[in-house]
Design a protein around this nucleic acid. Structure first.
Lengths: 229, 229
DNA sequence: TAGGAAGCTACACGCGTGTGTAGCCACTGT
DNA sequence: ACAGTGGCTACACACGCGTGTAGCTTCCTA
């Protein structure tokens, strides 16, 4: 069953690591602004001054969290790519697996705009996966792969970012043993059924391009030039 | 082209409405916590005391913003459903059109957890659209429609919520005249190509169900019971 | 063994903030 | 004409917060 959240780094258990983990928790639970250094310090079992001593500022602490998350995800990805496990469906889905306690922080960080390099990294992974998937595709893609990768990545992450809303709508906490299966089934169904047929798609694409040519009006607010956005 | 952001309500122009609009702006730009009542008041051209007079508290102001956004989206949806315009591809895409200045607030609100009723409303819209789309579907869906609607909605909204990351990855601000077309093309491509073939999907689904039966271990953190989540 | 850096704490400062209070102005209905 | 209500302002308060500073302890090193 492949990837599990790796245990603490050998270098961990140190106060610095405990603070970082506590910060991950608090930032994820309350958001960056509402989380307090004092609260983080208490969870870590240290004084608030030590937080400053190790990280300098609250912002720097956040960046350390982001960096750590990048490291975790990168390791996770390497693990998956090295693993010849046949069960892994795709990199997007795999990259969301076993993040465990980091889920909430990841969601917050993405929404609040930090975690930029993490997103970019994920796009790159998706791109690699797409490169492979494109070979099995009937029609040749005429859209830049990176663009598609970005959209795919965002969609995959939407489950994490909006998990509380999805949970509410589905009537079960999706990131729990009870909600896991329903979510997986829904995802499989969605992933295996395109919203648009290839014919519809080409029709729309044609209309889109024509619109672009015909109407060079570009009022940034009222109409952005495309019916489908 | 079809739906445009409706002009100010007749009852608007009032100070209360100006405050609400300013709040939408500030909350969207800086987030709820960082936004200040004084800043909102200044943008609205009123004193900070008036904000309190009209809305009572910052939290209540936020709720008023959410309520207003729900009203806007609901009106937008009615407009789309009433309109016999043939250009509208689907409700999910349509519901994201022409939200203009509300985009940023919507993104923040969803991520921060308010805007719950708005999300639920959108799920309902998507559900209606799915009900129709299901009739044109080859295989009968064996997943609850509401579950699929929730996932669909989240994915559609991911563009809004993560727009800054997508913009960075694509190298162009997606919610601008320049970025509009590239995003539309990427979306069409993604929407018209399933990530999973029907065969793969059924294989995974079978494996998933078997896993569920065979291994009733439900450690909430290490392994959540499914390879694909 | 002496020196010093690093880990760590306690405490205080100052600022920005949401909120509370008192009161003015304008308009309306009688 | 006049009370009264609601829109609106100015000002002050109290509190929580990030940050700064001084100093203690522990352990490595020369």
């Amino acid at each position: 069953m492949a990837v599990t959240t790796a245990g603490p780094d050998p270098e961990d258990l140190t106060a610095r690591a405990r603070i970082r983990d506590a910060a991950l928790l608090h930032f994820g639970e309350h958001g960056f602004e509402r989380a307090t250094i004092r609260g983080i310090a208490e969870t870590a079992g240290v004084s608030s001054g030590l937080v400053r001593h190790h990280f300098g500022s609250k912002q720097a602490l956040r960046e350390a969290c982001d960096a750590h998350l990048v490291k975790v995800v990168r390791r996770l990805n390497d693990q998956v790519r090295a693993d010849p496990a046949p069960g892994d469906i795709n990199y997007v889905a795999a990259s969301r697996t076993a993040l465990g306690p980091y889920q909430r922080y990841l969601a917050r960080a993405l929404a609040e705009g930090s975690a930029a390099t993490l997103f970019d990294e994920m796009v790159q992974m998706t791109e690699q996966w797409l490169a492979e998937a494109d070979t099995r595709r009937p029609d040749p893609p005429d859209v830049d792969r990176k663009d598609r990768a970005a959209v795919f990545t965002a969609m995959a992450l939407s489950i994490t970012v909006l998990h509380q809303h999805i949970s509410r709508a589905m009537g079960v906490e999706v990131f729990s043993p009870q909600g896991d299966l329903p979510l997986a089934r829904a995802l499989i169904d969605v992933y295996s059924h395109p919203m648009l047929s290839l014919e519809d798609a080409s029709v729309i694409r044609a209309a889109l391009d024509k619109t672009q040519d015909a109407s060079p009006r570009t009022d940034p607010h009222t109409d952005t030039g495309a019916t489908l956005r």
